[in-house]
């Protein structure tokens, strides 16, 4: 059983992770690099005060990633192009991003396939087509529900203490996943009632937000980042559900044919 989960999860996680990484690099990364020009102070938003001491993380990121903005003229606060030149493909930085995206999707995949195994044990068949629905449910639990109260943050936005947000994030994902499970497999009205409470609770309690907004990044960039990150998440999770169900189902067939019960 563990080998079956392991192989299905690894195949599905790698396949979805590679596609997620490519979508991310093409659609999300340019917005992130654009935001970092504001975070690092190279561009200054007309509505924000010139930042002199941007917070320490910006400097660590700047230091850890080679930047080459020779082609970016010093821009005055009054006229900032909305389409600056950002770096192209950076092998070290984007390679690491790809590796970590694949890793994260393998992590999701382990959880998803383990839950599919639980459903399977309860007599529920999982076809590749149904996998799409599992994927959408995963997207709702892991991306959409947290984003409802805590949108994906572009670098250079103000935020509350990271540990507090992480606790809120994990609680929200767990509560939403439990709620979706109850809606899918609950057999009476009671689980649905509990599910509604679990779906609402994290947002009624509310996500941790900063006391004041001090981020130097224009809201246009932050909005675009959030929606693009969510869109890529939906595409990648749908694919993850499809692949996970397909590999899980196939490994079941081969297992049955080799080990007749």
């Amino acid at each position: 059983m563990f080998m079956r989960i392991l192989s299905s999860a690894l195949f599905a996680g790698c396949a979805a992770g590679i596609l997620a990484a490519l979508l991310q690099l093409y659609f999300v990364q340019p917005v992130l690099l654009h935001a970092e020009l504001y975070e690092g102070g190279e561009l200054v938003h007309s509505f924000s005060q010139p930042t002199t001491g941007h917070h320490d993380l910006a400097s660590t990121v700047e230091a850890s990633t080679p930047h080459d903005h020779d082609n970016t003229d010093p821009v005055s606060a009054s006229a900032v192009s909305a389409n600056p030149d950002t770096d192209g493909f950076d092998l070290a930085r984007d390679g690491l991003s790809m590796a970590f995206t694949i890793l994260v999707y393998c992590g999701y995949s382990f959880i998803l396939v383990a839950l599919m195994a639980v459903a399977n044990g309860k007599g529920i068949t999982i076809t590749a087509r149904q996998g799409l629905v599992w994927g959408v449910a995963g997207f709702i639990a892991v991306h959409f529900a947290p984003a409802f109260s805590l949108p994906p943050e572009v670098p250079g936005t103000a935020a509350a203490e990271v540990a507090v947000r992480q606790v809120w994030w994990f609680s929200t994902v767990a509560a939403t996943a439990a709620a979706l499970w109850l809606i899918a497999f609950g057999k009476s009205h009671l689980p649905w009632g509990v599910a509604i409470i679990l779906l609402l609770a994290p947002h009624v309690i509310g996500a941790p937000h900063p006391d004041i907004f001090t981020g130097p990044v224009p809201p246009e960039i932050a909005a675009q980042f959030a929606s693009k990150a969510l869109g890529v998440g939906l595409a990648a999770w749908t694919l993850l559900g499809l692949f996970a169900a397909w590999f899980w189902q196939r490994s079941g067939i081969s297992q049955r044919s080799t080990q007749p019960a």
Binding site: D94, F100, A147, A159, A229
Partner: peptide
Amino acid sequence: AHDTRHAAGFP
């Protein structure tokens, strides 16, 4: 993992 974390919507 910086860019991945931002894009994944992790805090």
